[in-house]
Amino acid sequence: MAIDYKNLSDRELIYGQKSCPGCGATIAVRLALKILGERTFVCLPACCVSATTNVYPETSFFVNNVVTAFPATGSTLAGMAAAAEMQGLEDVVILGVAGDGGTADIGLQALSGLCERNDNVIYLCYDNEAYMNTGIQRSSSTPWGAWTTTSPVGGTAKGETKIRKNLFDIIAAHRVPYCATASTSYPRDFMEKIAKAKNIRGARFIHIQAPCPTGWGYPAEKTIEYGRLAVESGLWYLAEYENGEVKLNLHPPKFKPVEFYLKGQHRFRHLTEEDYKVIEDQRDQEWALLEKKIKS
């Protein structure tokens, strides 16, 4: 389905929220709601989006939304989908929005159950690569070498020591009807994926990288630039899993050097040339695995 910006509604369904200037997560939620429309019921765990939209007495969502416990996004969504089915609501979309911590660490068990039962919901995970809402603590989605308050730099410590979890592979292994990765810097690709997911029944999962100026340490106007550099340097990929097949939406013909992406960010400023090599090797291994999946 082709998306034309001219035909999209000018009506905002998330507005006036108190997120940081240049927030990538807000872009993701705003564009998703543009496609899904006002018959959407949103479920949020503790995350940046719930903390910035529901500041008493203000509510910045213009659709119904429920804020649930941190590990309970998947189970709350399953309940909402069951309730919608019991009441015979055919035209509604049940949307879960959670951060990377609430999806890959704390909410993983409930999400796995949701995918196994194949409940009729869309789960949107915006990945800002740490627990940003509580003040930049590492999550299992934090990339290797990144500084956070719980993966500090100094002495012998050089930031995050573990390789990030591949959430796309985890969810695809549940054999869900639809699973995809996206980036806020590629809005047309993202909105097409949301539009595709809207027309599929069952558990649908979209993992979107949402750069965070506060946590990553770059000027607010460069959110889109860094998201694009992540894709161009191969550190993030845009892929889809559907009918048992993995499809790549964008294959950069030649990767940009990772320095372009890493150098401007405060969280990577301690990295040296050798560290860039390590990150490039990790990237090449990840792409080799991905390409094997595409061919078979």
Binding site: G16, K18, P57, T59, F61, N65
Partner: peptide, 16 residues
């Protein structure tokens, strides 16, 4: 709960 209606804006963000 946190609000009685959806979409209730009580402060502007222009001061940011």
């Amino acid at each position: 709960g946190t609000g009685d209606v959806t979409g209730n804006l009580t402060a502007v963000n222009s001061g940011w």
